[in-house]
């Protein structure tokens, strides 16, 4: 179980959010959606142990978190295969022991052997994000933290990687926290949608999606999004975002 308990945090004298509580059950995919600046990424950073809350606490029953960022964050001086192995090497494993595992996982992610020998600058954006996904999955995580991993990709590729991700998550029985701007993406791949807003700050709405992530018909996804947007607090959160875009 992963739980933030009345967590507050501020940086440089500015409050990012205060008194947020959220619990994520075992084996669930939870999406955090909301306008930029509402503190989604900060929430994830606290869970990853990269930021400390000013008050409140984090309860984390997971031992082995993996993370994928908005940018691939690959080491430019390491080949794709070595980048994928980064977490394993950091844990002191030998390359003979995991070579095959990396290649097998790479194949399911749509990367062949030749891609693994390339440097990140020789790969396309989608390929790089596959490598980053592989790096997070190969350590056999029990919790996956995803910070808008597909937002920089074009729509077709995005959907392909979403399917790939959901398949991996369900096969491995992972728990995942997924940040996105995109309500449709959230409705497609998550069990629970958590809507955050800036005014009022914090979590404004939670919605459990029926059915199995990744297996929902498009029709249901769009009607769920329609229903969500009919809720006043959700509509407000997303309208604010639209105004910002203009």
């Amino acid at each position: 179980m992963l739980a933030w308990k009345s967590v507050s945090i501020s940086r440089m004298g500015q409050e990012i959010f205060s008194d947020i509580s959220l619990e994520i059950g075992q084996g669930k995919i939870v999406s955090l959606v909301g306008p930029s600046g509402c503190g989604k990424t900060t929430l994830l950073m606290i869970a990853a142990g990269l930021m400390d809350a000013d008050s409140g606490s984090l309860e984390c029953g997971f031992r082995n978190p993996g993370m994928v960022f908005q940018e691939p964050r690959l080491l430019p001086w390491k080949r794709a295969g070595d980048n994928m192995a980064f977490g394993l090497v950091a844990r002191g494993q030998k390359s003979i022991d995991f070579r095959c595992r990396i290649e097998a996982l790479a194949a399911t992610l749509g990367l062949d052997r030749r891609d693994l020998d390339k440097y990140p600058h020789e790969l396309s954006g989608g390929m790089r994000q596959r490598v980053a996904l592989g790096r997070a999955l190969v350590i056999e995580p029990d919790l996956l933290l995803l910070d808008e991993p597909f937002s920089a990709l074009d729509i077709g590729l995005r959907q392909e990687l979403q399917d790939l991700l959901v398949r991996q998550i369900s096969e491995r029985g992972l728990t995942a926290v997924f940040i996105t701007h995109d309500l449709v993406e959230a409705a497609r791949i998550s069990d629970v949608i958590v809507v955050m807003d800036r005014h009022p700050r914090g979590i404004v709405y939670q919605h459990a999606m029926p059915g199995i992530p990744g297996c929902r018909p498009e029709r249901d996804i769009f009607s769920a999004v329609g229903d969500l947007l009919a809720v006043p607090v959700v509509a407000r959160a997303f309208r604010a975002q639209d105004i910002e875009k203009l």
């Binding site: 142990g49 990269l50 993996g66 993370m67 960022f69 964050r73 980064f86 950091a90 350590i139």
Partner: peptide
Amino acid sequence: RDLEDMARIFRAT
């Protein structure tokens, strides 16, 4: 710093 954060999450010493 982003790469460093990444490395810390993957438990690099």
